[in-house]
Design a protein around this nucleic acid. Sequence first.
DNA 1: GTTGGTGTTTCCAGCCACTGGAAGGTCAAG
DNA 2: CTTGACCTTCCAGTGGCTGGAAACACCAAC
Lengths: 142, 142
Amino acid sequence: MNIGHASGRSGLPAKTIRYYEDIGLVSPDRGLNGYRDYSDRHVHILRFLQRARALGFSIEECRELLGLYQDKGRASADVKALASAKLAEIDEKIRALGELRATLETLVRHCHGDERPACPIIENLAEQGIPQERPARRRSAA
Amino acid sequence: MNIGHASGRSGLPAKTIRYYEDIGLVSPDRGLNGYRDYSDRHVHILRFLQRARALGFSIEECRELLGLYQDKGRASADVKALASAKLAEIDEKIRALGELRATLETLVRHCHGDERPACPIIENLAEQGIPQERPARRRSAA
DNA sequence: GTTGGTGTTTCCAGCCACTGGAAGGTCAAG
DNA sequence: CTTGACCTTCCAGTGGCTGGAAACACCAAC
């Protein structure tokens, strides 16, 4: 099966499938013409990756999951640990976004939204206290 | 005021401040020694950017907000539109993450997490139905 | 004056996970 | 034989920084 078909069956763009080969996740055979040749097994793995990515796992985490998937002697505890860590990450993201949301919502609610320049949103951005007198290392939310 | 001091007062790393100059957001004067020289006004703008970024606005949106901030004849409606769009984006992110969370949570809850290989998380990744028979364009959640 | 340490400059490379596009080879249909 | 869809490789770009190298500037101590 060539890459277009594998793309159709896995739900991943061909570009992404090639990329996954580049980084050593899925390596198909090659036909006489140089075309990649995917087996059902490969497609199965591609689907596995598609779903793991859709659940928010990073590429490196997907690599681990794939290793566990192919390890018949795996401990389900190892899989659960990965998933639990991801769950905690997601919870943290939701929490952080919730904070942003609350702030933004308050600002939007208080803005008249007319043709006059007065605007509590701009004022908040401009006038808030000095964030802290420290010299470096700051991470902001996305 | 040199860049280290501006960094301290704005809460942005020096690297980031230089980057903002690179992309034309904040352009300080230069001293005789070639050092960047920031005024209180510059620092004010840097803080503005720091807060806008922390609220989730992209660099390009920050550029717009900065333009509006400096535009005495702005319409607050324009600011509100930006903020409302951002709010909607955040809501969508929260919703999508909530879905992921629910799925992951169910999987984690059903996994024994012991030394045996049987694992509903892996099974779910491996066995779910074909995502769809379409050839291209797929975006997954982060 | 010299030493040393810290701060600053520029520039280049890398992160993540792709995505776009160019230039060319292959294949099946008409 | 041509057309067009598909495939190949390779290089560059995305966003928003971050790390690091090499060189220059500054300041205090000796």
